[in-house]
Design a protein around this nucleic acid. Sequence first.
RNA 1: GUGAACGUAGCUCAGUUGGCAGAGCACUGGGUUGUGGCCCCAGCGGUCGGGGGUUCAAGUCCCCUCGUUCACCCCA
Length: 429
Amino acid sequence: MSEASAEPILAPKGTYDILPEDQPARRWLLRTAEEVFHRYGYGRLDTPVFEETRLFNRGVGESTDIVRKEMYTFLDHGDRSMTLRPEGTAPAARAFVEHGMHTRPLPVKLWYHWPMFRYESPQSGRYRQHHQLGVEAFGSDSPELDAEVIGVLATLYDELGLSGIELRLNSMGCRVCRGPYTGRLRAFLRAHQAEMCGECNERLEINPLRSFDCKVPYCCEVMEGAPRLVEDLCPACADHHAAVTRYVGLQGISFVTDHRLVRGMDYYTRTTFEFVSADLGAQSGVGGGGRYDNLVEAIGGPPTPGVGWGTGVERILLALRRTRDDLPRPVPPGVYVVAFSGAARETAFVLAHRLRRQGVAAELDFQGRSPKGQMKQANRSGAHFAFIIGDEELAANRVTVRDLYTGEERLITSDDAVEAVLNAEESGR
RNA sequence: GUGAACGUAGCUCAGUUGGCAGAGCACUGGGUUGUGGCCCCAGCGGUCGGGGGUUCAAGUCCCCUCGUUCACCCCA
């Protein structure tokens, strides 16, 4: 083994480390989310990070980019094909079925905070491992539930202070209306094949709806004249969509109907929606979701409608950091215990221990720093107080308590010092 | 997967037509033999992303590669 030639090992491409200084903002975000979910009556669900590959093939859909080229799939030692979860809805549906949750009072409302894995080319706001917060509500096809689910996300963004976002709403129809509509759209696209880009022609058969998303100018022009699904829904879907928009409005949430909004999972039916942020780059979607009335059945469960969404934790933080500079930061210790002589180190160590047992965050030097160096550290740590112990304090059996905000100093017993800090922390709250 | 830009100290970045690898911040010590913040001095810290090539000489030019960023695509 040659130490000199050891190459540094870096985090895998598209992944990142979450350092101590990054934690408080993230923790605050998650706490806020948990609180919001609780108020709306959602219970937390956790599932394994890997599932049988079949779940995603059947659930998300063979034609999707996620399944076709973005999954981390491997064979385990029993030659079973496993996949690191690329999204949350299919696993949640699997758990719903596996635990017979259809016998619980419906709807069953769940939330999650999970890492997701997709083999994509990384860029800002797009990672190979990222975290999503999500909710899934199973067992009701009421448009009020679509609206509630959207309301949960809008409330979350609002309470996080995420501004500059826009809600886009659409309906993808159902089995009854989507089939005939896609037929009509295909016919339209074939008629205009010569005017469209190569990609649009390629996806004509697989997913013609995608052409609405094409950025090529002349494609956009053609698509202006294309039949629109929202305007071509079956009566039931049209009623549903109208009710969803009404109930979204009742919550005071503004939105735009975007007939071109097509999402990348095959399971969507009826409602689809997306929140986009003006503060992100090209990866402007912060959260999105929709209704999936056929998904549970597709993975072998009883016919059960559902609706939900996922939102990217990293993208929320990215957008927040671009608009706010007051996100939570690490909490400084209450006390930094300073030893001014070698003989005082033992007493300092014990004093720090006592403080910690009393509920006070206390730090001390381990590097053998000079008195000045320790004071500098005390200052940098942000501690309110420095407890200073040197030969004088040892002789007097006292400790010097220095208020690092005011510079005021007192020589008191260690009992009084601990008491003083506890009082200061109490009144500081 | 495609295209473009960029990789120099822990961080943010200079580095001229190829000619001794730098600054600020951070870190350590000192100025103050027991006192932080401001200031001053000094120190520590570098496989110049990696490999190959051209050259007397490469951080600088060429090729490959890895990574990051931006865009396409897709999505959170």
